[in-house]
Structure formats: structure tokens, C-alpha cells
Amino acid sequence: MYKVGVIGDRDSVVGFRSLGLDVFAVYNFDEAAACIDTLAKEDYAVLFVTENMAEGIENVIAKYRDRVFPIITLIPSNQGVKGIGMQDLKRNVEKAVGADILFGKEG
């Protein structure tokens, strides 16, 4: 059995607690990075990270990209969508296809 974690600023993630997810409130990028590193060693399979925390720790997230676990998925914070998650998706398309075909612009 694997666990699901949510990492982000306190006000964004507090609601997930009631769903039975493990919530980790972090206050800055360093804490977020440390949190991801710690959780990756435990049996957390899915980590939802809010975009506003993810934007400062791209290198940490990139480190787990090649691994199967944990699956790090970006979610919007309560300050709205920043488009970082979409950006990653776009990058995947460009990597695989060589051009951005989903969003209608030529790479």
C-alpha cells in the first residue's frame, strides 16, 4: 500500500487533510525541497505539490522525473493557476514530437 502526500502552503493544502491525504505545510522553497526528499524515501507514491512551491524547486522535481516513485504532480495553489503544470506537459510534447502540436503554436 502506498500513501499520497500533499505539499504546499498552509492555506492551500489544509482542505486535503479531510480527505485522508497526508498534508505537509511548508513555508519556503527549502522546506518544500527537504520535504519532497524525505517523503521520497518513504512509501509515498504520489505527491501533489502546489505550483507556487514547485516553481522555486524545479531542480528537485526534475531529479524525480526519471524515477517511477514518487509521482510528483503539480496542482494550483489558492492563488490560482500559474501554468507551470501545463508548461511541463508542453515540454513533454515537444520532447516526444519535436514540435508543439497541442497548443497550436509551432515550436
Binding site: 500500500m1 498552509r10 489544509v14 487533510r17 479531510s18 480527505l19 485522508g20 491525504l21 516513485f69
Partner: peptide
């Protein structure tokens, strides 16, 4: 208040387990 909110959700009635 933040304290009230956090207290309210502190003990979830469900536990999320996933299998991968």
C-alpha cells in the same frame, strides 16, 4: 479562524490508500 479550521479537519474520517 485558522485554528478552528485546522482543528475541524484534524482527524479525517477516511484514510486514503492507493495501490500502484
Amino acid at each position: 479562524s485558522r485554528e478552528m479550521l485546522e482543528e475541524a479537519v484534524m482527524y479525517p474520517t477516511r484514510r486514503m490508500d492507493i495501490n500502484i
